[in-house]
């Protein structure tokens, strides 16, 4: 039994975010929004390795136009448990260098912001909900992982 799809979105408050959230609601996908402008909240959430978080995602969506994905991925990817979480980076445009950068950071994929979120999220949710086996991310595994203390001591985001 794999974990159900639950999405954490890191972005700023924009109409696009509301469209994305509404689409996820329409397709029955649990999700949370972490404001990209709330540096303290981001620090707390990621530097604590999600161990104390009430919501542990099985998929993360980072808005590259609103946050610095390389800093978040630098916290997630060295961690023995959190590195399993697929990270989709989305943003305006389809610049080849940006696409290459995203994959080189270890993200799952780059997704250009669609003109119509509702239409784009239909195939998105069909794929990730119906066909993809997701990692098991348990808060207790995160807490007990050996590198948890090392993670907490990393350079602040």
């Amino acid at each position: 039994m794999t974990g159900p799809l639950s999405v954490l979105i890191v972005s700023t408050e924009t109409p696009e975010l509301h469209e994305l959230e509404q689409s996820l609601r329409n397709y029955g996908v649990p999700h949370r929004h972490l404001p990209a402008e709330g540096k303290a909240a981001l620090d707390f959430y990621f530097q604590q390795g999600l161990a104390d978080a009430m919501f542990v995602p099985t998929l993360i969506m980072l808005d590259i136009d609103a946050c610095e994905p390389e800093k978040i991925l630098a916290l997630l990817k060295p961690h023995p448990v959190l590195r399993r979480i697929p990270v989709i980076i989305f943003g305006h445009g389809n610049d080849p260098d940006r696409v290459k950068l995203v994959y080189s950071l270890g993200a799952t994929c780059y997704m250009p912001k669609p003109p119509n979120w509702e239409a784009a999220m239909a195939p998105f949710c069909s794929y990730w909900k119906k066909h993809v086996a997701l990692p098991a991310i348990k808060a207790e595994d995160i807490s007990s992982s050996n590198s948890y203390s090392n993670l907490s001591n990393r350079t602040p985001y």
Binding site: I88, P96, V99, Y110, M111, P112, A120, P123, K130, H131
Partner: peptide
Amino acid sequence: SVVEDLCNFWLRIASTPSSR
């Protein structure tokens, strides 16, 4: 069904390094 959904996502929703 699987192949259709993965093609829709990886070829039409996501961008990949080779798609450029």
